[in-house]
Simulated scan of single mutants.
Amino acid sequence: MRRLVPLCILLSAAALHAQPVTKDAPNYHVTHRVRLGGAGGWDYLVADAASHRVFVTHGTHVVVVDTRTDSVVGDIADTPGVHGVALAPDLGRGWTSNGRDSTLTVFDYTTLVPLARIHEPGVNPDAITYDSATKRVFAFNGRSGDAVVVDAATDSVLGRIPLGGKPEFAVTDGRGMLWVNIEDRGEIAAIDTRTMAVTARWSIKPCEEPSGLAIDREHRRLFSVCDDVMAVSDPDARKVVATVKIGGGPDATAFDAERGLVFASNGEDGTITVVRESGPSTFRVVQTVPTKSGARTMTLDATTHVLYTVTADFEPAVAGARPAMKPDSFTLLVIEP
């Protein structure tokens, strides 16, 4: 995502943004918090329903939380500048994208023990995803503006895909297509995961500098989030079909296929916008959930329908500098319907 260090934290007006819950939306709210502690910024977090775990990137390591006990059950160390985590339960493996030294860490899916280090040819790997159709890992490099493709079974680098801009989050359809937000161009690029080639791209304006991306695989819709707006795209028609007003400073989005809900985590506002999908081009906000300022990244457990986000407490801002994070205040927020 765009920043590994915490965002400039503003006083949250979440209570003022809260809206009444409509009859067709669950009553999402923060039910409890899990103190993770430690120092350093954060980026993506990934909920894995199969293992009941949440993987939380945190500066130089990945904290692993058991969602049944709300306890830390593991740690993947030595991942400098870690941005993302990709998981392949079918292969018993996982990967982290380490932006600071431009490497990928391969780890055992069950034990979390590191297995290998991949020194990939790109610069500053950020988003990372596993494509089950080809059993390949795609790591997206923010500084070199490309994607590196890795054979998930052998850890060998298969190729490099120029993207013509700064890639952000990516999603797959499980059938051989992948889509990635291109932040500095305000567009989406489509990649054939078998040929490893860009097959299309289109503008998603008025969505500028897109970060988070989610997919409705059944109805073929992509959800990109930008400051104050969510753009809904038809990847087959290669165009935006709807836009929705969301909160400020979003950095992640998620889609709950069973409930037909789209979520955007807004770090500046300290809220999560809940959007109802009621047709291929019909989307409306049904709830705004207060969270906490700085809670900009998010993940969804699609089985339990629980959302997770992270943030911290900060010292008062000093002119010209980012506010310092208070020691050991890094916290996972659990948001349940």
Rank of each mutant, 00 (worst) to 15 (best):
V5P: 06
A13N: 14
H17Q: 11
P20C: 03
V21H: 02
T22L: 15
T22A: 13
K23L: 13
A25S: 14
V30S: 10
T31K: 15
T31A: 10
V34Q: 09
V34D: 06
G37Q: 09
G38S: 11
A39N: 14
G41H: 09
W42P: 00
A47C: 06
D48N: 15
D48T: 07
R53H: 11
F55E: 05
H58K: 10
G59L: 08
G59E: 09
T60G: 15
T60K: 11
H61A: 10
V62Q: 03
T69M: 06
V72W: 01
G74I: 11
D75A: 08
T79L: 02
T79I: 09
G81W: 08
L91M: 07
L91E: 02
G92K: 09
G92W: 00
W95V: 11
S102V: 02
S102L: 02
F107I: 05
D108V: 13
T111Y: 00
L112T: 10
V113W: 00
P114I: 01
P114R: 05
P114W: 08
H119P: 02
G122R: 03
V123I: 15
V123Q: 13
N124H: 12
A127L: 05
A133M: 00
A133T: 08
A133P: 02
R136Q: 14
A139W: 06
A139H: 07
F140D: 05
R143D: 15
R143P: 00
S144T: 14
G145F: 10
D146E: 12
V149A: 08
V149N: 08
D151N: 15
D151R: 07
A152P: 03
A153M: 13
S156H: 14
S156M: 12
S156R: 14
G159K: 07
I161M: 01
L163S: 00
G164R: 09
K166G: 01
P167K: 15
A170R: 06
T172E: 02
G174N: 14
R175C: 04
G176Q: 09
L178T: 10
L178S: 08
D184H: 10
E187M: 14
M196E: 15
A200I: 00
A200N: 03
I204W: 07
C207F: 12
R217G: 08
H219C: 01
H219P: 04
R221V: 01
S224R: 06
M230I: 05
V232E: 02
V232Q: 01
A242M: 10
F263N: 01
N266V: 06
G267F: 05
T271I: 12
T271W: 02
T273F: 00
E277G: 01
V285C: 06
V286Y: 01
L307P: 02
L307Y: 03
Y308E: 13
Y308K: 07
D313N: 11
F314C: 06
E315S: 10
E315N: 12
P323E: 15
A324E: 13
M325A: 14
K326L: 15
D328V: 10
S329C: 02
L332Y: 09
L332A: 07
P337C: 10
